[in-house]
Design a protein around this nucleic acid. Sequence first.
DNA 1: ACAATTTAGATAGAAGCTAAATCTATTGCC
DNA 2: GGCAATAGATTTAGCTTCTATCTAAATTGT
Lengths: 411, 411
Amino acid sequence: MPEQLWVGIHGEVKIPKPQGAATPQLLRRVNAQAVLAAIRGADVATGTELMAGTGLTRASVIAVCEDLIRRGWIRELDAPRKNTQAAGIPQKGRPARRFELRARAGVVLGLDIGAATTTAVVADLRGRVLGRAGGSFWAADIPASERISVVDRACRQALEAAGEDAGRVLAVGAGIAAPVDRDGNVLSAQHFWSLFDVGLRSALADLHGWRVLLENDANLAALGERWRGSGGGVEDLVVLLAGERLGAGVLESGRLLHGHGGGAGEMGFLDMVQGVGSSDGIASLARQWLVEAGGPAGGGEVNARRVFEDAAAGDATALAVLDRLSERMARVIAAIASLINPELVVIGGAVADSAGALLPGITAALPRFTATPPRVAVSPLGDAIVTVGAVRHALDFVEANALELELPAPA
Amino acid sequence: MPEQLWVGIHGEVKIPKPQGAATPQLLRRVNAQAVLAAIRGADVATGTELMAGTGLTRASVIAVCEDLIRRGWIRELDAPRKNTQAAGIPQKGRPARRFELRARAGVVLGLDIGAATTTAVVADLRGRVLGRAGGSFWAADIPASERISVVDRACRQALEAAGEDAGRVLAVGAGIAAPVDRDGNVLSAQHFWSLFDVGLRSALADLHGWRVLLENDANLAALGERWRGSGGGVEDLVVLLAGERLGAGVLESGRLLHGHGGGAGEMGFLDMVQGVGSSDGIASLARQWLVEAGGPAGGGEVNARRVFEDAAAGDATALAVLDRLSERMARVIAAIASLINPELVVIGGAVADSAGALLPGITAALPRFTATPPRVAVSPLGDAIVTVGAVRHALDFVEANALELELPAPA
DNA sequence: ACAATTTAGATAGAAGCTAAATCTATTGCC
DNA sequence: GGCAATAGATTTAGCTTCTATCTAAATTGT
């Protein structure tokens, strides 16, 4: 194997591009990835189960497993238990070797870097959250360096909460609310995020030796939703981050859509859609319309949560706002559904918990606007949707590069 | 090799699905495909050129070539010419073996099945058109069986014009103006095309033993445009069929978008877009608006070509219609560009020849409607764009399955 | 004419995968 | 306890690929 092509995590991990053709080395790469993913999926996996999960023959599965054991990614459970009466299933035949992911062999970081706040999550190789921390930016226009230090602080605190060391981080997935292309680069000069691209990546790489994978926040939300949300098994999925500003993440045939400059899923065209007119999100619109309607019943602060609570209590003003919201979201979803034709559209973000109240209205209105109405659901992930996706994104990278990444010493 | 999995073209060709993992047999498949594509790309290819084109080593390239020669797909040119002064380039070193596609080893059919007419094209393995024929349907609502016989007749006539036999057809690509999913099935029950799906496929399969690959016409146009149009080298491409009714074919990262039921690229949402309001195409709108403006200068028939001719001659009424068309198409393109973010949008179909006059207006108007304006071009393929794509689609299938397809005897 | 240079093909050894045959460790039954 | 049945593991032969090395056939220069 050409070792010189592969340098450790502290440098760049280069993936040789198959120019339309394939090599045996690549076989081992993708097969190791497939086996690792199959083991991750189950608590404990036997050789036969892995054969079913990967399509490989037993010989290959075992060879890959031996390799992964040697490298520290998985472990073999000893003493294939005899009397399996205890396990419930009466087991005939020779007992299977059982393999298990060494979930704590390393950790990944998942970041949700918003305009106002940043959330950092530490997760193990199975994606279980070990620690979490957040940080806010004092103002909208603070310099990039300060922004980066806020992010860095959140990462350190999350690691501390998890009791993990920075050296055990295998990869960092980071979501930002800007177009990011397929290679993880921020192109648009119009967003202040462009400063962030090189800055954040090199800062975290320099400080800790981390590999940082940038991605659009809505795209990560789509990954998260398919993994741990209502999108299980759905390969044509759109996630609509619908809080303050709308953004869409699109999975088509299981792959994220990026477009030429990473701008796929941008909602600018909503300015031109009748009955919509802007890419404002649910929370923003709820506040606007509540004020238009004369403020909340009985006075008090104007916020989106209040609108949904009042509506649940039967307040007519709030109910009218919900109707408007349902209709508007139906138009938005219909426009996307017409052009992309997903099987499922998931509404996610901070408003997801409340947005369930909109579902009946949206579902009822959809057929008026599109001939191919998708299923519509609300994300169960709440405002963790982006960090969950960021963790998945980082884990995908780690699993794809398991044979090249060197595992750190146990904590 | 598991021969029982592969039956000839007269049956179903089953492609084993890699469940996330890869096998050596698949390697040979994709490598043969890559080599074949590289040979097709050049007139004559040397081993070294194929190495560059595929990323394979010489040993593998040669092995694949020997295989392809044995199966009849390519031939080796004899006597690597010595004194290459004649060839222009003074050639040092050992002369290369030269391989050439046996372009006439078989043919493919490309069909454009429209609402009113059908066009059939016979092409060789390099995609050169050998024969062409068309047929019209007398009415819009004739029964499916009659429709199929019109298609069949066009195929036979095209073959006759090409001097080819039905037995030498390796695959048939067919474009229809309805959603077609990834597997080539027509799902929508609302379209009269749904009858066509099974009907056409089994009819042509029964009559001639052909393998029929259905695909949406705009999607085929996108394939055609990348192959032989202005989309060379562009991997994020949208083709807008803009004649009577708008339809979009989308290539993202080089792959066709289908969506859950094949509905990706449907333009129904345009009903909701301000300044657009329908998915009417350029020809249709030109006629409508010319009538609105009081008919053509000096009377005569109302048709789209006339509008463009009058505008070229300086007619104010026609110029006003062109301005309206430019603005409208700019809005359509902007909406798509926002959500999909292609590098290039190509206007194609029967109106493509004339639509060049709209380009300056569209390009100028685009930035008003989207933050990410794509390049806009007009297809050089005219109304052959769908058949060109259909040929490419069929050839893609043939090249991907070269090792399993049995070549017919030479004509 | 002859050697050096250049370019390309041919061969050998190692690594990965599959498929088929064989080996091994259990359970279940007599 | 012994033996069949069963399920998993291991071995062997055959492909396909890569890398590294060697050989072949042309041009160029003296």
